Amino acid sequence: MSYQKLSRDQIAKRVAQDIPDGAYVNLGIGLPTKIASYLPNDKDIFLHSENGLLAFGPPPATGEEDPEL
């Protein structure tokens, strides 16, 4: 049996597909934070980060970053 290694983005996209609607998900640091970029817009999923921030989303577009956040 042969397996193809997935990229970090491919792994994050695959994990995002498994999160059910209405879920509260605690994302750690590193790879798990990429998952927010792949969540579908038609699901209500609440993300919680390790530092206690609740209800954040994907990273901002280039040029729209806020260094104060």
Rank of each mutant, 00 (worst) to 15 (best):
M1A: 13
M1R: 12
S2R: 10
Y3F: 14
Y3L: 15
Q4C: 06
K5M: 07
K5Y: 02
K5R: 12
K5L: 12
K5N: 06
K5F: 07
L6E: 10
L6V: 03
R8M: 10
R8Y: 02
R8D: 08
D9N: 15
I11M: 09
I11W: 00
I11C: 09
A12D: 03
A12L: 04
A12G: 10
K13V: 00
R14W: 06
V15D: 01
V15H: 02
V15M: 12
V15F: 10
A16D: 05
A16N: 10
A16M: 07
A16L: 04
A16T: 08
Q17F: 01
Q17W: 00
Q17R: 12
Q17E: 14
D18W: 05
D18H: 13
I19W: 05
I19E: 04
I19D: 05
I19P: 00
I19G: 06
P20L: 02
P20M: 01
D21P: 10
D21F: 03
D21S: 05
A23D: 01
A23M: 01
Y24M: 05
Y24N: 08
V25C: 10
V25T: 12
V25A: 07
V25L: 09
V25Y: 02
N26Y: 05
N26D: 00
L27S: 02
G28F: 09
G28Y: 09
I29S: 14
I29W: 11
I29E: 07
I29M: 11
G30E: 06
G30V: 03
G30P: 08
G30I: 04
L31R: 10
P32C: 10
P32Q: 09
T33D: 00
K34N: 11
K34S: 02
K34E: 02
I35G: 04
I35Y: 05
I35M: 03
A36S: 15
A36E: 03
A36I: 02
S37E: 15
S37I: 01
S37R: 15
S37P: 00
S37V: 00
Y38A: 00
L39R: 06
P40V: 02
P40C: 03
N41L: 11
D44W: 01
D44C: 03
D44L: 04
D44G: 00
I45E: 06
F46H: 15
L47D: 10
L47T: 11
L47K: 14
L47N: 13
L47Q: 12
H48V: 15
S49M: 00
S49N: 13
S49T: 11
E50N: 12
E50A: 06
N51K: 11
G52E: 03
G52C: 04
G52D: 03
A55M: 09
A55W: 07
A55R: 14
A55E: 13
A55L: 10
A55F: 08
F56W: 15
F56Y: 15
G57E: 08
G57F: 06
G57P: 04
P58L: 01
P58C: 03
P59W: 04
P59R: 14
P60S: 03
A61F: 13
T62Q: 09
E64H: 15
E64F: 15
E64I: 04
E65L: 06
D66W: 04
D66M: 05
D66A: 09
P67L: 12
P67Q: 06
P67F: 13
E68F: 13
L69C: 03
L69S: 09
L69E: 07
L69A: 09
